[in-house]
């Protein structure tokens, strides 16, 4: 340093340092990205994101559970009584107000992801105070539309994207 006899303008020298440092940081960032990105779902997982379910054998009042993206999906064939129960409630009473009609495609069929919105446990069918589901982990009660009624869960059970193919088949995803 004591022998510093550099006479060039400091601005130009500063520029080349800044440029190099900036480029270096950009390059380092770009090479970190693949390492981060590899932890995301890979393309074979993404491609598997739809399933087809035959629902012709589900009886009224019963429910089947199918696996979709590694999670349980409840497919419930609701009785008249259950549908009425889900509809005869004022939205004002709900912690997460959603109309039952908007949560189903056909009134009879309720399709929800069976993961409690609190911390990810699987709620139990037919338990709880509202005739729907009850989560054993922290005591969330869901009604016959899969809506949260009581307990710590913040939102209703998620309705996945699905569609009917004919009378007795649905495609989820």
């Amino acid at each position: 340093m004591d022998k510093n006899n550099n006479n060039s303008k400091p601005t130009r020298r500063d520029f080349i340092y800044t440029l190099t440092a900036t480029l270096g940081v950009l390059g380092a960032g770009a090479s970190v990205w693949p390492i981060v990105s590899q932890m995301n779902p890979d393309s074979s997982v993404k491609a598997l994101s739809t399933i087809e379910v035959d629902i012709s054998k589900v009886e009224e009042g019963k429910e089947i559970t199918v696996m979709w993206r590694g999670k349980p999906v409840f497919i419930k064939r609701r009785t008249e009584d259950e549908i009425t129960k889900a509809r005869n409630i004022s939205l004002k009473e709900l912690p997460h107000p959603e109309n039952d009609k908007k949560r189903v495609i056909k009134d009879e069929w309720l399709v929800v992801v069976g993961i409690c919105t609190h911390l990810g446990c699987v709620p139990i069918n037919g338990k709880g105070e509202y005739g729907g589901w009850f989560c054993p982990c922290h005591g969330s009660h869901y009604d016959t539309s899969g809506r949260i009624r009581k307990g710590p869960a913040p939102t209703n059970l998620e309705v996945p994207k699905y569609k009917f193919v004919g009378e007795d088949k649905i495609i989820i995803g």
């Binding site: 990205w33 693949p34 390492i35 990105s37 590899q38 932890m39 995301n40 890979d42 393309s43 074979s44 997982v45």
Partner: peptide
């Protein structure tokens, strides 16, 4: 990163490497 996808078993090792090369994001790189 490779260790997160590789499977050290005689039945799965080659397949898991091919999966890394084809499906894992930037796995080939």
């Amino acid at each position: 990163a490779l260790g997160m996808h590789y499977k050290p078993s005689a039945d799965e090792a080659f397949d898991s490497v091919e999966k890394i090369m084809r499906d894992v994001n930037f796995g080939w790189l």
